[in-house]
Amino acid sequence: MLVLRGISPPSPTATVLTIGNFDGVHRGHRALLARLRAAADQAGLPAAVLTFEPHPREFFTPASAPARLSTLREKLELLAEAGVDLVSVCRFNASFAALSADQFIEKVLVQGLKARHLLIGDDFRFGAKRGGDFALLQQAGASWGFGVEAMGSVVHDGERVSSSAVRAALAEGDMAHAARLLSRPYSIDGRVVLGQQLGRQLGFPTANIRIKHDPLPLCGVFAVEVAGLGAAGAPLATGVANLGVRPTVDGTRRPLLEVHLFDFSGDIYGRHLSVRFVKKLRDEMRFAGLDALKAQIAQDARDARAFFASRGHP
Rank of each mutant, 00 (worst) to 15 (best):
G158P: 03
L50G: 12
I105K: 03
G6F: 09
H156P: 03
S70E: 08
T238N: 11
G173R: 04
D157H: 08
L243Y: 00
H26T: 06
T15R: 10
L86N: 13
V89D: 04
M151W: 08
L33R: 07
V245W: 13
W144C: 05
A65K: 10
A165H: 06
Q201W: 11
F22V: 02
I209V: 15
C90D: 02
G203V: 01
V155W: 00
G251Y: 14
L69Q: 10
N242I: 06
S88A: 15
R37E: 11
R167L: 01
P185D: 08
F92H: 15
R254L: 05
S183V: 08
L243K: 04
A97W: 04
G199E: 13
V108Y: 00
L45I: 05
V161Y: 03
L72C: 09
A169R: 02
A150R: 14
L99Q: 07
I297M: 15
P185N: 02
L182I: 03
R276I: 00
G239E: 01
V192M: 13
E284M: 06
R286P: 11
T248Q: 13
R5G: 07
L198D: 11
R191F: 04
A309R: 12
A80G: 15
A171G: 02
V110W: 03
A207V: 06
E172D: 15
H55F: 01
T248W: 05
G121F: 02
K212R: 15
A232E: 15
G6M: 00
A97Y: 04
L181M: 08
A94R: 15
A171M: 01
T18R: 10
G199L: 07
P205W: 12
G28M: 14
R57I: 07
E58A: 08
R125G: 01
A140F: 05
H260A: 03
G203M: 05
L257G: 08
R35P: 10
P185C: 00
L229T: 09
S163H: 07
F287G: 10
G132S: 09
G220T: 10
A98L: 11
P62A: 00
K107R: 15
A47Y: 13
A207H: 03
T13H: 08
R35C: 02
L78E: 11
K114P: 07
G239W: 02
F146K: 07
L229S: 09
V166Y: 08
C90S: 13
Q42V: 09
R73A: 13
P66F: 02
G127N: 04
G141A: 06
G24H: 11
A298P: 03
L218K: 12
A98M: 01
P46A: 05
G24Y: 04
D157R: 01
L243A: 06
L4F: 12
T71L: 12
D214G: 06
L33I: 01
S164K: 00
D102W: 02
V161Q: 06
V259A: 03
A82Q: 03
A135T: 14
L109W: 14
S310C: 00
E53G: 06
E53T: 13
G145F: 07
V221Q: 13
A178G: 05
K107A: 14
V166H: 02
A301Y: 02
Q138G: 14
R210E: 13
H117P: 11
P255H: 10
P314S: 08
A234V: 10
R191Q: 12
A150E: 15
L229N: 09
L236K: 09
